Structure formats: C-alpha cells, structure tokens
Computed example of a mutant assay.
Amino acid sequence: QLRVLGLDVGAEPQAVQDRISYMPQKFGLYEDLTIQENLDLYADLHGVEPGQRKERFARLLEMTDLSRFTGRLAGQLSGGMKQKLGLACTLVRSPDLLLDEPTVGVDPLSRRELWQIIEQLIEQERLSVLIST
C-alpha cells in the first residue's frame, strides 16, 4: 500500500494527482510557444481559474526572473531559463507536494537560482518538496 499526503494511491489516484506536481529532468515545454503561452497552456491543463492566473503568473514570473521575457519563444531560452519556465509551468496551480529534478544539466548560477526559488516556495507556501539530484 502506498499513501501520499494521507491518501491511498490505489484507491484515490486522481485525488493524489490533484495535490501533487512533478517536474521531470527534461520538461515538456512547447518550444514554438512563448513563455506566456506555455503558462496559459499549463494553467488550462490544470484547470486554474482565470481569476487566479494574473496574480499567480506575476508571482511565478517574478520569482523566476522571467517577467521581461514573456513574449520570447521557449525554444529561444537558455537551458537555465527553460528549467525555470518548466518549474513555473509545474507550479501554475498550488500543489501540496512537488516532486522535482530541477537542476540537471544547468549551469551553476541557474542551479543556485533554482534552489533559491524552491526554498522560497517551501517558506512562503509551506510546500513539501521531494527532490532528486
């Protein structure tokens, strides 16, 4: 038996899925979409209400330092910026648990920035994080 956040995974798989977010090593960004379009798409996929998006996007873009690049295509971003966008897309909804592998293949500065973002989320949103490195 496996329990996540007190829920039985076998009996309540959708309830578990609704409360966690996962960011794989190679995140599935749509490189022909802009940063903003990727955020909108992931918000649509996760059912984030339109009224919640403006504030949530602003916070994520500020946290990841991507706010000045929202019109840039994801395919034109550096590796570190792609990872930050992947993390922002993963967090368009507020999960209770984040399963993450965020720092694989990024430069030392981006790695440090990603750790700082995750630490902010832990402190500010009381997010539980399970990280694989």
Rank of each mutant, 00 (worst) to 15 (best):
Q36F: 12
T34I: 06
L60M: 02
R93D: 12
P50N: 05
Q52W: 06
L99D: 08
F69G: 08
R112G: 10
S94T: 15
R53T: 00
D40C: 05
P102F: 04
L61H: 07
F57C: 00
G79K: 00
P108H: 05
Q52K: 14
Y30D: 05
A74I: 00
F57S: 01
H46T: 12
Q83Y: 07
L60C: 02
L45T: 04
A88S: 12
L91H: 08
L99F: 14
S67M: 07
L85N: 03
K26M: 13
L77S: 00
N38H: 06
L99M: 06
D40P: 04
R112T: 12
S78F: 02
K54M: 11
V104G: 08
G80P: 14
D96H: 13
L77P: 00
E101K: 14
L87Q: 01
E62L: 12
Q36R: 14
L77V: 02
V104K: 13
G105K: 00
R59E: 14
A43V: 04
G75K: 02
G71T: 08
T103N: 13
P102A: 07
E113L: 12
Q76G: 07
F27T: 12
G51W: 13
R59C: 13
P108D: 09
A74H: 00
N38W: 09
P50T: 06
L87H: 10
D96N: 13
T64C: 09
M63K: 12
L98E: 05
R72Y: 04
S94N: 14
L61V: 04
M81V: 02
L109V: 15
N38V: 06
T34A: 01
E31C: 00
P108V: 09
L97E: 10
R59S: 13
S94P: 09
Y30G: 01
G51H: 07
G51S: 11
E101I: 04
K84Q: 10
D107C: 04
L33N: 09
E62M: 08
G80Q: 03
P50M: 14
P95D: 03
G80H: 09
G75T: 03
G51T: 03
D44L: 03
